[in-house]
Design a protein around this nucleic acid. Structure first.
Lengths: 351, 351
DNA sequence: TTGAAAGCGCTACCAC
DNA sequence: GTGGTAGCGCTTTCAA
């Protein structure tokens, strides 16, 4: 029994429209692309034909004829942290593939935690040479203004990984970080046995994603696991060495720490500390982002769970959204929703 | 600082090849498509030009000229179970989108748990009208043979959701079900407090995916959580009513059940049972596939976790793989790997 | 305000 | 064996 037969006869083309409407190809094209210089009566005729035939434009053919190029840029912090490195790798990889599909992806690194660098980068963009830009950076008034100016110049802008106020950017590509924090808390609460303290390592107060994770984490911990005490965050600035240095003192001062939530980057520092401290069956460690380092830690049982977002999906989604925005066409909401991935050792994908 | 500049000058076309090789467009095309009737010297010349220029074919243009259509078929069990229904919805949705990209997706429902029905369906396929088929069904010798025959007739075949031996199908689109079972076990073991029994509900002995999940589940439970006793599976045949009927007796006989692993479909029956039994804070329930029913159960705290696979991704991946196989072109391994998703209430995506 | 015709990159048919 | 040429569905001069 055939459920559906989506196969149809033959799809109508611009020629069919021209014939039915009794006009030329050029006129059909003018109407299709909302170009000026067509009498409204004619526009009507053409639109009727389009509706009657159920015409849908063949984007591939259109882009071929138009020699349309999508030139997209990713602005990322210039840091060695594993997640950002993975992101850049994903951009390069996608870029290589999309290169043959009339799309170029570039990456621009700017000093981390430096709003002005992002502002300068955005203001330096040439609207004649760039169609869209994905921005991964702090949310400050100056950045917001620069984003607005960029969009005003006709360049599509999406907030990448860390959101900017929705009134400013065209879209946000990333996870719901409050939900990610809540997820970490739920796992922490269910994994930890007995009472004790929970240490939270964060990155920067300027990073909206870090703040949101902390908010979500605290909400679930206090409501569902009040027997666990969440301590004030230590700010690691995504720096492994700094984190490695800070931890011994913290553990000396609070021997009853039962869980660590590493909500930002810099995991290698945490891992070095944990390895030096030796086996710790009663300590639950939950971190963010599946990278070579965190993957190994999960494998060895040093980490108990990893909350992650798929870098490939992030890049593909940003690309699709930027293109759709540049073309002023709709997109598929559900496909662009980035999942909050949970990885245990058991469901880690092969490297 | 610009990290990479992937933008390149201008991509070489068939015309460039013709010019450089000193032959005509037609000959270039013959070489490109491995058509007969070209002297090997000429082939050499053309190939050198191709290498020298770094030519890469523009698939969009080629498909346009070729009027290439991809006619793909999904063979699925004719059942009302939530997962299969979601799959069909995803096929219809993708189909509507791909329809304008020279690709048609059809779905064919066959009686569930019936190898012969699949064999008949495959043997009934017209190679002149179908380019590829995704098969979701039991792994039996007769099915394997039919898959072989189908491929021999030039139709691409991927195993869908439940694997077939790798020697038979072109690819497998689905999760590693052993790992999925292991994942469920790890969550179960860490969530359950104290000792007790774990009940496993399975679907059918014929379904390879169900068997694999059970295998993985048992392995982790026995090794890491020996204080929990995993009981013999009850076979629910993915039937909510049957499951609803069986459960009361099981719980009467074993009052110390502390966890339920619903490894197949039919979750609505389990949910009805749990609702009737009332609140149960000390019972951990882990099920498969995020559907309307399971999502609601997770939301209400009736389920503790859901192991899932993204139906949209499954369909998109099967489609890409079938096309790539039909075209004999390579594909991107990492993008086709279906993740084992873990959902808690906290990271459930919006409906 | 409209139309004819060339062309995007590639394929395919028909001659030579 | 090889080459010219029309054409896929759409856009874009250039004339009219």
């Amino acid at each position: 029994m055939r459920d559906r037969h989506l196969t149809s006869e033959k799809k109508p083309t611009v020629n069919d429209i021209a014939r039915v409407a009794g006009v030329s190809l050029a006129t059909v094209d003018r109407v299709l692309n909302a170009r000026p210089g067509v009498r409204s009566v004619t526009i009507e005729k053409v639109n009727e034909a389009i509706a009657e035939l159920g015409y849908v434009r063949d984007t591939a053919a259109a882009n071929l004829a138009r020699k349309r190029l999508y030139r997209l840029l990713f602005i990322l912090p210039d840091t060695a942290n594993e997640f950002v490195v993975a992101l850049k790798a994903a951009i390069a990889e996608q870029g290589a593939k999309l290169h043959h599909q009339r799309t170029t992806l570039d990456a621009l690194s700017v000093p981390p935690f430096d709003p002005q660098a992002i502002v300068d980068a955005l203001d330096g963009l040439d609207a004649a040479r760039i169609d869209g830009v994905a921005v991964f950076g702090p949310e400050t008034p100056s950045v917001r203004d620069a984003v607005r100016r960029t969009r005003a110049r006709g360049i599509a802008v999406v907030a990448f990984v860390s959101d900017l106020p929705s009134s400013d950017r065209d879209h946000f590509v990333g996870i719901d970080n409050i939900a990610a924090g809540r997820t970490a808390a739920k796992l922490m609460g269910r994994f930890v046995r007995g009472k004790g303290r929970i240490l939270v390592i964060t990155g920067s107060r300027l990073a909206r994603d870090h703040l949101e994770r902390r908010t979500g984490f605290d909400a679930v911990m206090s409501r569902e696991f009040p027997h666990l005490e969440v301590m004030a965050s230590i700010e690691g600035r995504d720096d492994p060495d700094l984190i490695r240095q800070m931890l011994p003192d913290v553990f000396d001062a609070y021997p009853d720490i039962r869980g660590i939530y590493s909500s930002a980057a810099g995991n290698p520092g945490l891992i070095r500390f944990l390895d030096a401290a030796g086996p710790h069956d009663d300590l639950v460690v939950i971190a963010h982002e599946l990278t070579a380092a965190s993957r190994a830690a999960l494998e060895r049982g040093v980490f108990d769970a990893i909350i992650s977002q798929d870098t490939g999906h992030l890049v593909r989604s940003a690309t699709r959204l930027l293109k759709a925005t540049a073309d002023r066409v709709p997109f598929d909401d559900t496909q662009e929703r980035i999942r909050i991935d949970i990885y245990l050792r058991e469901n880690m994908p092969a490297a």
